[in-house]
Design a protein around this nucleic acid. Structure first.
Lengths: 224, 224
DNA sequence: GCCGAAGTACAACCAACGTTTTACTATTTG
DNA sequence: CAAATAGTAAAACGTTGGTTGTACTTCGGC
């Protein structure tokens, strides 16, 4: 019918993302994952060895997909900037959308951030490299490009990492824009409908922080 | 020696905070908590009924203590403001300090935020009311006071919640300032020593966003 | 000195879970 | 056809963990 042989692997990854995302590593059971994937538990062990191996595959694969999506959004809105504020707002709006679309993934990420002590460092590095660092890097590239055009002032770079200023600004933008979306059903006392205004506010704050002082070629935002 | 009878309860709460913070609810075991508290497991059930009851007591108690500390920091630095930027920086610096001092608590909070689906809503509300909402409220009060003096421009308030603008600004400040401290040993690619400069950067961004336009009594920061 | 509250040590119960084993089926490939 | 490959179903193993029951100890207050 649907597949030649092995969409089993895909089904397992999907089911595991759902279960791990909802319940976290410890609570999620192999049996539940097998049921969600429509697969026998033995097949999971055949593909991924053990629970830990499955988990690493799940987060790395999911992070890659999400990062690809987010980088595409970065490029779409910040590749050719015509009106900085409007483009940043559109960027932020579309960036916070996947957080509902990829609900399971971001739920999983929260679990990972809480469980860092129980995850092998190699797995963490692999995940960060495949996901968040790639996004921040892409965003930093675009911000530096805008700074070169004189549209932004990113501040003085550090000696060791010349991109530190751009990465910091990128982190700030992500923080301000993603802080707009509540973790869950209204934990931060924020309601859904004001996502747009929350993003606008975040962008406005970002711009106030990183707009070059009027009448300066490309200076740092302020004196220490 | 040290106590008449029942510091047992305190010892249990402390030990449980350590264990829950390191391992999360599911992984933390009653036996380990009992051992950490120097107490028999039976005593834990005598005091708190069951694991869930213990957990709720732990987070509520801990959140209250941390919030008290943070509110004191808010008042100390933002009660009598003389030099806004310097005071905000000192505030941010001292606010991010407890995150290492109360390491277990913030670790626990990350677990809670990831485990929201598995925690009774009543417990979540109680925790939010006892902790984060009180801090944001206190900070918002001070920001509104600064806005009244014309030192800040918080934006237009919403109809339903007149304090929404102040609370949003307070959330932004917390976000920018606390985003400076890495979750763990360098997950965000940030190193410890630059906490000071991270806080400075965050405050600078905040001020650029919420400083009143020069030569305006008390306007909103920008047009929509 | 006695009572009762609080605590302890220890065993036991029961359920859940990760993992392996075994026996069996279906499908592809040479 | 034969052999390998991938998958399934179900039981079993060993461990861990939450929870309870029970008998024993402390110790402060009357």
């Amino acid at each position: 019918m649907s597949g030649g042989r092995s969409d089993k692997r895909r089904a397992i990854l999907d089911g595991a993302l759902t279960e791990f995302g909802r319940d976290g590593y410890a609570r999620a059971s192999i049996d539940a994952i097998a049921a969600a994937a429509g697969v026998s538990t033995r097949t999971i062990y055949a593909h991924f060895g053990n629970k830990a191996g499955l988990f690493e595959s799940v987060i790395q694969e999911s992070a890659t997909r999400v990062a690809d999506t987010q980088i595409a959004i970065v490029e779409r809105h910040l590749g050719k900037v015509v009106h900085l504020e409007a483009d940043l707002e559109a960027f932020g709006l579309e960036l916070t959308e996947p957080m509902t679309g990829f609900r399971d993934h971001f739920s999983l990420v929260r679990h990972v951030n809480a469980d860092l002590d129980h995850i092998p460092p190699a797995a963490i590095e692999a995940w960060q490299d495949a996901g968040p660092r790639r996004v921040v890097g892409a965003l930093a590239d675009r911000l530096r490009q805008l700074a070169d055009r004189g549209l932004l002032a990113l501040g003085v770079p550090a000696e060791n990492d010349p991109d530190a200023a751009a990465k910091l600004a990128a982190s700030h933008l992500m923080l301000l824009v993603q802080g707009a979306v509540p973790f869950h059903h209204g934990v931060g006392a924020n309601r859904e409908p004001d996502r747009e205004s929350m993003v606008q506010a975040g962008v406005r704050v970002f711009l106030r922080g990183y707009l070059p002082a009027p009448g300066s070629g490309s200076r740092r935002p302020a004196a220490g």
